[in-house]
Design a protein around this nucleic acid. Structure first.
Lengths: 189, 189
DNA sequence: ACCTGAACACCGTTCAAGT
DNA sequence: ACCTGAACACCGTTCAAGT
């Protein structure tokens, strides 16, 4: 079941060109980059784009799926180096940094943790939730994370922290601080 | 300086019709409601909409300025009833609830706390920042709020909490919990 | 089986003409 | 001084025709 129908040579070439063009366009113009422009950059008709990627979300996911997978792997690497509580925070930090750095990734990660959207079962959502579950579970067993939060809550709040950081001029420079305000709380230590 | 040039009767009528139509349209279709549709609902030409409101942000602000002012007044009412620390949290709660309830309000409140946008000097941003300053200052003097946060940080983080809550199905029902996770922190109490 | 690109609908924005 | 609405540019989406 690993191997689905192999694509026709021209179809595969167009698919890859579209992904490359999409990555460029999203980087330049954000998640709302013109789909028509992406097709043009790739040198294909607009219908071809729709054949391969029926929705904008599908194109976004295909464009960034490797980055999402990398975040999932980072969760395990970090878990080996740090204590569970520190690992969770460090991973959330990296998630937030990617969210603010890579234009277009934000809406994808957002819909991955949104209730009700059909997109929930996508690879992206699956990877993120699995990674969060591992780290959250370990931190709770260690006793450094409240037991009344679910992995999905943590992912949503991290998305909120990334959103808050984006409102500041130096975007990324606020991530660490805003994240620690979330973990430590707003009350004085 | 209170009284600027009085508007011509037809101009004032169109202005009010546009605001009414805008409130309806934003409520129905969110902050990206079609401007053309708003002009049509109001029974005016599209050029008239642009004359009164040169940008979508300007129309959003005019539509919701009364709600923003109400939030500013709520800050003072709450401050009379609760201790400074409790008052800040309760006000932030109301801000988050409005943000998630009133479609279109979110982008307005977001741009009010965004660095660099020219919109910073608008009435909306001024009201929100003034209210936050009063509550944050009082809570810090009381000793129930960290001294290393600025009012703008608190407003941005509240915006993040509202964003996180919106990702959950029951939107509003998560606001209280997510907000308390921010104030208390993710570490066990 | 897949691709192309014209065609359609929709939207934002401007501006000449009108009162 | 203000309004109208046609005109233009742009974008998303579909689909008949082509290979």
């Amino acid at each position: 079941m690993a191997q689905v129908k192999p694509m026709r040579a021209d179809a595969r070439r167009n698919y890859e060109r579209l992904l490359k063009a999409a990555a460029e366009a999203f980087a330049e113009h954000g998640e709302n980059a013109s789909l028509d422009d992406i097709a043009k950059r790739a040198g294909v008709g607009s219908g071809t784009l729709y054949r391969h990627f029926p929705t904008r979300q599908a194109l976004l996911e295909a464009t960034y799926v490797d980055r999402i997978e990398a975040l999932g792997e980072r969760a395990d690497e970090i878990a080996k180096e740090l204590s569970p509580g520190e690992a969770l925070v460090e991973w959330l930090y990296e998630v937030c940094v990617r969210t603010t750095e890579v234009r277009g990734l934000k809406s994808l990660l957002g819909s991955a943790v949104t209730d009700g959207s059909r997109v929930e079962l996508t690879a992206c959502a699956t990877h993120m939730k699995a990674a969060a579950e591992r780290l959250v579970g370990a931190a709770q067993e260690e006793g450094t994370l409240r037991r009344d939060v679910e992995p999905i809550d943590v992912l949503r709040l991290a998305h909120g922290v990334a959103t808050a950081s984006e409102l500041a001029k130096g975007g990324g420079s606020h991530v660490r601080r805003y994240l620690s305000l979330l973990t430590e709380g707003l009350r004085p230590g």
